[in-house]
Amino acid sequence: MDIDSPDNTPQAPARTRMPKWLPRAMVLALVFFGLFLLADWAFHRLTGLLIVLFVAFFVSLAMEPAVAVLVRRGVPRGLATGLVFVGTFACVLAFLAALVTLLVETATNLAHETPRLLNEGVDWINNTFGQHFTVHDLSQRLLHESDLIEGYAHTAADNAWGVSTTVLGGLAQILTIALFSVYLTAGGPRVRRTVCSLLPPARQQTFLHAWDLAIDKTGGYLYSRVLLAIISAIAHGVFLSILHIPNPIALGVWFGVISAFIPTIGTYIAAIVPVFVALTVDPLDAVWILLFAVVYQWFQDYLLQPRITARTVDVNAAIALLSVLAGGALLGAVGALLAIPATATLQAFLSEYVKHFAVAEDPRIEQTTARRKRTAAAPTHD
């Protein structure tokens, strides 16, 4: 009979203790996770306010050069800020009033001229394609689609409350942006002093230089666009007066603002309203307006704009259009308006604070230069 010896007795497995740091780490992980959720919740709640502050900051940068000019002439900063913003709001309200008046008159003229335009259009179709349509036939077919029209009417009526709420919310947001912009502009020196007090002396000059750079680019963009808008308004107003189009001054201002602040395609978008107005006078005038818009857009993009923006904001046309689309997707119309000065400011920062290296001459980079060198080196024949 085998008797187990003490040496052969199986021993119980040793108990593994939890590391002392593990409970503390778990508690800290839960605390940090809770703080992350709280920060994420607060960020989403405050996104609208952050956007308002961002827009107000850029508006204050755009207003700073005009306010600085008045301050240098002895006007108190608060009064100078008020004068600049009141003048800006007056110009915006005047433009909106002219635009509403223009749209109402255009709609009224189109309503009066629609029967004549329909008769002329039906006659042209019958003569061109050998058909026998009449306006009465078209109206009867339209009446058969009354259910569809009624559906659109009910949908518009159901959305009326939502649209009105959106408009009121937009007005409240604009007023909030204006209020913060006034405070930031009037207290600009105080804001800069507060930020500088948080930085070491070596960083204060860098911050002030970056602030001045942002003011130069944003203000330069605004004033260069205003100059382009004035030139465009005068050119289009004179051309529309030659064609005897109604309200040429209001249409010229519409052309100027849209073509100046929407890059590349602004003139074509602005041409929509004058084309509708021209249709109530003479359809051939609509063709002339489109041709003039194409020619003027080419003149503005390749001759006028590079000379005006050479000392203020120099952004490639493709990059400008891309930035406008991105700004519009992120912040709507306000984002589209601020996209180009933000891009120009970022471009200026990168050009000053990012290290650049000399590029070696290579025909794959400088094809035009290489071609000119080969042409100059080629022997001439008498």
Rank of each mutant, 00 (worst) to 15 (best):
D2A: 13
D2K: 04
I3V: 12
A12C: 07
A14F: 05
R15A: 15
T16N: 06
V27W: 07
L46T: 07
T47A: 09
L50R: 00
L53N: 01
F58S: 08
A62T: 03
E64Q: 13
P65R: 07
L70Q: 09
G74E: 05
V75Q: 04
V86M: 12
T88V: 13
T88Y: 10
F89K: 06
V92A: 06
A94H: 07
A107N: 14
L118T: 07
N119S: 00
T134Q: 03
V135C: 02
V135F: 00
D137A: 08
Y152S: 15
A153T: 10
G162L: 14
T165Y: 00
T166F: 07
G169N: 05
L171H: 01
Q173C: 07
Q173L: 04
L175E: 09
T176K: 04
T176C: 06
A178M: 08
R203M: 12
T206L: 09
H209S: 15
D212R: 15
D212Q: 14
D216Q: 13
Y221N: 04
V226G: 15
I245K: 08
T264H: 15
G266E: 03
G266Q: 06
L279K: 14
W288E: 10
Q297S: 05
Q297H: 01
F299T: 01
D301E: 06
Y302R: 13
P306W: 10
P306D: 10
I308P: 11
A310T: 05
D314M: 11
A318R: 03
A326M: 13
G327E: 06
L330H: 03
A339Q: 11
T343Q: 12
T343I: 02
A344M: 01
A344F: 02
A344P: 06
S351R: 12
F357W: 09
A360W: 01
A370W: 00
R371K: 07
R371N: 02
K373H: 01
